[in-house]
Amino acid sequence: MSAYILRRILYAIPILIGVNLLTFTLFFVVNSPDDMARAHLGTKYVTPAMIQAWKREHGYDKPLLYNSSAPGLGRVTDTIFFTQSVDMFAFRFGRSDDGRDIGRDIRARMGPSLEIQLPVFVIGLATNITFALLTVFFRATYLDLAGTVLSVALMSISGLFYIIAGQYLFAIVLRLVPISGYAGGVESFKFVALPVAIGVVAGVGSGTRWYRTLFLEESGKDYVRTARAKGLSEAQVLFRHVLRNGMIPILTGAVVVIPTLFMGSLIMESFFGIPGLGSYTIDAIQSQDFGIVRAMVFLGSVLYIVGLLLTDLSYTLFDPRVRF
């Protein structure tokens, strides 16, 4: 078991190196430090000296990948790529364009993001499973048909619509909650309630449909017939047998997203003015702050890989057949 975990963690390293290489290519090769400097200093009245100064200030005055002038190992280490990568792997994200410490910003903004994402995840999962079980329980009836059609319709609606319509209805027309904003502590409930509700509703269509097919596939299997032949009621068959088997792919599939919940939701946070990582990212994208975007890409990959590891481990938890 521990050998397995160790191997998986070691396997994550080449993946992170790959991610790092990719983002480096995007941010430093396609868009060279000179371009960055020019973009920041403005296109007019820029002298080469100013560009050099800007690059030195940001530590971008070294060669990109290979330093032919440095001695020994320094040829590789004394480069932008190496210093930047080492910083990344040490979770030192540097400073944003407006001079703030990115690492500290990220830590501060994780909380509000989680406050929305976690309830959406938990309530959403419960809701989707419940609805899916209901449609399976009433399968081949009009209730099932209506449920299926409804979920297709729900999943055909743009996520933006849920947010815009929800905000308009509950915050502007009914004035039940504030339009946007955030406060810590107990106060936060009234700011978070609407985004959470919208998040759940927006996911219910596709979730219910996906789980329904899983449960249906499961309920067509031989062991379900065996359970019925024992004289179990339809509800007992569904809850004791079908649910347990169907939950394996559902839970293991859900586990992978748990770590990425930290990343927040881009759209929701920006619409509701939640100071989480989602709005942080979107602001960075809109103000073209590459430092933050790069940090978020790296963080996202790390969290995804943690998610993969958790998925594998969760199999041992949910599925007696899997042992390491």
């Binding site: 890409v297 996202g300 993969l308």
Partner: peptide, 16 residues
């Protein structure tokens, strides 16, 4: 590797 990068961020980075 490609999967591990959040899709929106990769798109955002590339488009930027």
């Amino acid at each position: 590797t490609l999967n591990s990068i959040p899709g929106v961020l990769l798109i955002a980075a590339a488009v930027l």
